[in-house]
Write a protein that binds this DNA or RNA. Structure first.
Lengths: 243, 243
DNA sequence: TATTATTGTAACAATTTGATACAATAATAA
DNA sequence: TTATTATTGTATCAAATTGTTACAATAATA
């Protein structure tokens, strides 16, 4: 849980936010045939966390998640979906957050609003890796992409959150045709198949995959992509939004 | 939003609960070939609402939903699932709740904790209609089953909540094999097919349906059910939990 | 110009699903 | 007792989908 804290927001009240409620976002990207997620790192503590934030009193819950996403990636109009609410008592662990605040030179009281119990609404986002620009928040000193396949330990219950986000993404992939959000605007059939295989964690038959995708009528074929190697050049495709 | 209010909980603080956070439950039942949901009705106001409640400071979020479900139906160990969080500003409308409290002889201040903005976590439950005993809460005077197909207007955004719950149930039905939770322990193939058709809102082919269900290996065939009319008696089946 | 690896698609098999048909059979009525 | 009736369980075949293999058509390189 790493939250945006402007100076005036570090006061104990947190009065401009809904109390005890947070959003955490699992931001997926795809690069070098690997699924990645965006993580924040805190100086001196070595702690890694999902981008998160609080909900303003004057803000819709979903808009808070969009704001967090925009603040960490610079991106608007991104595929973003609620997937689960994490509300167990066991997730309350003020130790790492206190360490982060102390590393920042703060000396929070035990009843500081940031150290209390939080219920967190989990969102996952699918972004074009080439367009997102990772931006740290006020408490963290770096923000970057990490391979999902080799994820380091995360703060609090964030590993559970990531696991649940991936499970939801896997279940949603065919039902909602959302994979395209992870690719740049044009892509080859091999790119798309690799994406599907990586998300689902299984190999797919090339012929059947191509037949299925083309049969859905949701991509249009563009020019060929040359300079791909000593072989026939693949076509590029573009996703056609169903509107 | 109808919440359990014991006398000492009507005090303005609501201090034993997480502030600004609620759960609302869409409790599905199936009877007379109709999908039903459980609703609370408030005296003098004519308002109908989903069963809901608050999360104790010492309680897991999911346990709060289980508690609400148990308090309204008397049932434990019920299929219960989070499906969406409702957090828009537009859902904040203190008028109906004030009317309910006034009908109860209360005169709440404008800043009474019950009249503030709430983010609500939506759950849906699937119960055996024959086993649930609807029990009103402290603010309501009746609790009963209503046909989903002819739902009267509900308080606040509860109609949206019901619509989203149904959409989730429809999407989950085949993927998770959860329909059995709505039937009594034994049922005929016709019962099960009618349930599926009612939830999905479409007719299914009898032969294919039977073949599919039997092919899944998740039901065991019991004795025949006689006295069903002037025709061949159907078998009864029982769901085999996959453990 | 030959070689190489990959692509697009055809072709066929295997499987699943859709639709129809029909014998079996409980309850009711004749 | 016997015929009638509606429903059930399953078989059968057609249609659609999916799994698998095969192969000609290339771009780049040697």
């Amino acid at each position: 849980m790493s939250k945006s804290l402007k100076p005036e927001e570090t006061e104990p009240s947190g009065a401009e936010f809904l109390p005890g409620l947070a959003v955490d976002t699992v931001i997926f990207g795809f690069h070098d045939n690997q699924l990645k997620i965006l993580l924040l790192e805190y100086r001196n503590t070595g702690l890694l966390a999902l981008p998160g934030g609080f909900i303003k009193n004057t803000e819709n819950l979903n808009d808070a998640a969009r704001r967090v996403l925009a603040e960490r990636t610079g991106l608007q109009d991104i595929y973003l979906e609620q997937f689960h609410v994490f509300g167990d008592l066991t997730r309350h662990d003020p130790t790492p957050l206190r360490a982060i605040m102390q590393a920042k030179g703060l000396q929070p009281d035990d009843d500081h609003w940031l150290l209390g119990r939080f219920v967190s609404v989990g969102y996952y986002a699918l972004v074009d890796f080439t367009k997102a620009i990772p931006i740290p928040d006020e408490l963290s000193d770096s923000c970057g992409w990490y391979d999902l396949a080799a994820l380091p330990p995360l703060m609090q219950d964030h590993t559970d959150i990531v696991r649940k986000a991936l499970a939801t993404l896997q279940a949603d992939l065919d039902r909602k045709l959302i994979g395209f959000n992870l690719l740049s605007e044009t892509f080859t059939m091999a790119d798309l198949q690799c994406l599907y295989e990586t998300i689902l964690g299984q190999t797919l038959h090339r012929s059947g995959f191509q037949r299925k995708i083309l049969g859905l009528g949701i991509v249009e074929r563009l020019e060929k992509q040359y300079s791909g190697g000593a072989h026939k050049a693949p076509y590029l495709y573009r996703f056609i939004s169903n509107k």
